[in-house]
Amino acid sequence: MTQLSLWSADLTAPVGEDLGGLLAADGRLEEGDDGVRLIIPLADPWRASALVRECRVRDVDAHIETDEHVTELRTDPAPVLAELRERWVDGPDKVMPAGLELSAGLIRCWVIASGRPAPVGYLLGLDPRTPELHQPLAAVCAAMGLAGSILGPRGGGPAVRIVGHRRCSRLAEMVGTPPPEAPAGQFPQPMH
């Protein structure tokens, strides 16, 4: 029997700030006359279904748009997204929020949006449009015991690659139970 960590997403209450994990990945915030919405393209349809639920438990309505090439999650405007915009956006640019700490919910959202196993370790996908955020996000991971190296496009990135038994086990503990939509082996698993 595996004991859950007190830092697990399974044991911490979901908060709107957790959706910053989508911004650590390839998400963006758009402001319109009716408020701020979050949009993120996703590599796999299972990710969109899982993120609709993650948004819902944080009081943000979301839906999936799909064409033959792209699956995209789009939220409705929500006050929590306006708060995220204040922290993650400066003018037209996505920026690293001052004092950002990875919560279990934030890293869970990040893993669902862009995490994937690698031949060695586990990758947390980064936004290719904001390379200036890659190093600061890797530093925040390191501060939470998830030190990793940054991979460029030729290495399967952009992504933070987390390797090692202890770090990968910590990641699995933090993100909690895999969503039911996740294919076997796609979500971080505790290592024994």
Rank of each mutant, 00 (worst) to 15 (best):
D26G: 12
V60G: 04
R28C: 04
V36W: 13
V52M: 03
D44E: 15
C55T: 07
G20Q: 07
A50N: 01
G32N: 13
P45A: 06
R58P: 08
A48V: 14
W46E: 04
G32D: 13
L19S: 06
P41R: 07
R58S: 08
G32E: 12
D33K: 11
S49M: 12
L23A: 03
L29H: 12
W46D: 07
A43Y: 01
W46C: 11
R28V: 05
V36H: 12
L19Q: 05
E31I: 09
G35W: 15
A48R: 09
W46S: 11
G21T: 02
R58Y: 08
E31P: 03
S49W: 09
A25C: 10
L22K: 03
E31S: 15
V60P: 05
V36I: 10
E30V: 11
L38G: 04
R53E: 14
G32Q: 10
R56C: 01
A24D: 02
L19H: 02
D59S: 15
R56S: 09
V52R: 10
L22C: 01
L42A: 01
P45C: 01
W46F: 12
L19F: 06
V57Y: 02
D59P: 00
V57H: 03
G21M: 07
L29W: 11
V57A: 00
G35R: 15
I40Q: 06
E31T: 13
C55F: 10
D34S: 12
A50S: 15
D59E: 13
E31G: 08
L23I: 00
L29I: 08
R37M: 03
W46A: 09
A48H: 09
P41H: 06
L42G: 01
P45D: 08
W46K: 11
G27H: 05
G21P: 03
R47Y: 06
L23T: 00
G27N: 04
A48Y: 09
R53S: 04
A25R: 02
D59C: 07
S49G: 12
D33S: 14
L22A: 04
R56H: 10
G32R: 12
R53H: 11
L23V: 00
W46R: 13
S49K: 13
D26K: 15
R47N: 04
R37F: 00
R37D: 00
G27S: 07
E54C: 05
A43V: 09
G32P: 11
R58W: 05
D26H: 15
L38S: 06
A48D: 08
E54V: 09
R28K: 12
L19W: 06
I40A: 05
V52L: 04
W46V: 09
L22S: 00
D34F: 10
D44W: 14
A24G: 03
A48G: 14
G35M: 14
